[in-house]
Measured scan of single mutants.
Amino acid sequence: EDYYQILGVPRNASQKEIKKAYYQLAKKYHPDTNKDDPKAKEKFSQLAEAYEVLSDEVKRKQYDA
Rank of each mutant, 00 (worst) to 15 (best):
residue 7 L to H: 01
residue 57 E to A: 08
residue 39 K to D: 14
residue 48 A to T: 14
residue 52 E to V: 07
residue 29 Y to P: 03
residue 33 T to Y: 15
residue 53 V to C: 06
residue 42 E to F: 12
residue 46 Q to L: 10
residue 9 V to P: 00
residue 47 L to V: 12
residue 17 E to M: 13
residue 32 D to P: 07
residue 44 F to E: 04
residue 6 I to E: 02
residue 3 Y to D: 00
residue 3 Y to Q: 01
residue 30 H to A: 09
residue 5 Q to K: 14
residue 23 Y to G: 14
residue 62 Q to Y: 08
residue 49 E to Q: 10
residue 47 L to R: 02
residue 55 S to V: 06
residue 39 K to E: 12
residue 43 K to M: 11
residue 6 I to S: 04
residue 58 V to K: 09
residue 43 K to T: 07
residue 14 S to P: 06
residue 8 G to L: 04
residue 54 L to A: 01
residue 37 D to A: 05
residue 23 Y to H: 14
residue 2 D to Y: 04
residue 23 Y to D: 15
residue 59 K to T: 06
residue 64 D to M: 02
residue 3 Y to E: 00
residue 51 Y to V: 03
residue 39 K to N: 14
residue 47 L to F: 06
residue 39 K to L: 13
residue 30 H to P: 05
residue 51 Y to F: 13
residue 27 K to G: 12
residue 49 E to P: 03
residue 43 K to L: 10
residue 54 L to M: 03
residue 5 Q to C: 14
residue 7 L to W: 00
residue 50 A to G: 02
residue 16 K to V: 14
residue 21 A to R: 08
residue 60 R to H: 02
residue 56 D to F: 02
residue 57 E to M: 08
residue 61 K to H: 09
residue 2 D to I: 03
residue 21 A to F: 04
residue 64 D to N: 03
residue 14 S to E: 06
residue 37 D to K: 05
residue 18 I to V: 05
residue 41 K to W: 14
residue 30 H to D: 14
residue 37 D to C: 06
residue 57 E to T: 09
residue 11 R to Y: 07
residue 55 S to T: 05
residue 61 K to L: 05
residue 2 D to F: 05
residue 52 E to T: 09
residue 23 Y to S: 14
residue 50 A to D: 00
residue 9 V to C: 05
residue 45 S to V: 12
residue 28 K to Q: 14
residue 26 A to K: 12
residue 52 E to L: 10
residue 3 Y to I: 03
residue 2 D to M: 04
residue 4 Y to R: 01
residue 50 A to V: 06
residue 11 R to C: 09
residue 9 V to I: 11
residue 32 D to C: 07
residue 64 D to S: 02
residue 65 A to N: 07
residue 13 A to S: 07
residue 50 A to R: 00
residue 35 K to I: 11
residue 31 P to A: 10
residue 38 P to G: 08
residue 46 Q to P: 03
residue 51 Y to I: 04
residue 1 E to I: 14
residue 12 N to K: 08
residue 50 A to W: 01
residue 54 L to N: 00
residue 8 G to E: 07
residue 65 A to H: 11
residue 61 K to Y: 04
residue 57 E to G: 04
residue 37 D to P: 05
residue 56 D to M: 02
residue 23 Y to A: 15
residue 13 A to P: 01
residue 26 A to T: 13
residue 2 D to S: 11
residue 65 A to Q: 13
residue 22 Y to V: 02
residue 47 L to N: 02
residue 63 Y to V: 03
residue 34 N to Y: 03
residue 22 Y to N: 01
residue 43 K to Q: 08
residue 22 Y to E: 01
residue 62 Q to R: 08
residue 53 V to M: 04
residue 34 N to L: 11
residue 37 D to S: 08
residue 7 L to G: 00
residue 6 I to N: 02
residue 49 E to V: 10
residue 15 Q to W: 05
residue 36 D to R: 09
residue 3 Y to S: 01
residue 63 Y to N: 02
residue 37 D to E: 05
residue 61 K to G: 08
residue 60 R to K: 08
residue 27 K to M: 12
residue 31 P to D: 09
residue 50 A to E: 00
residue 58 V to W: 08
residue 22 Y to D: 00
residue 63 Y to R: 03
residue 45 S to Y: 12
residue 29 Y to H: 08
residue 51 Y to Q: 02
residue 63 Y to T: 03
residue 46 Q to M: 12
residue 52 E to W: 09
residue 4 Y to H: 01
residue 12 N to Q: 09
residue 4 Y to I: 00
residue 24 Q to G: 08
residue 27 K to P: 09
residue 2 D to W: 05
residue 26 A to M: 12
residue 42 E to N: 11
residue 2 D to N: 13
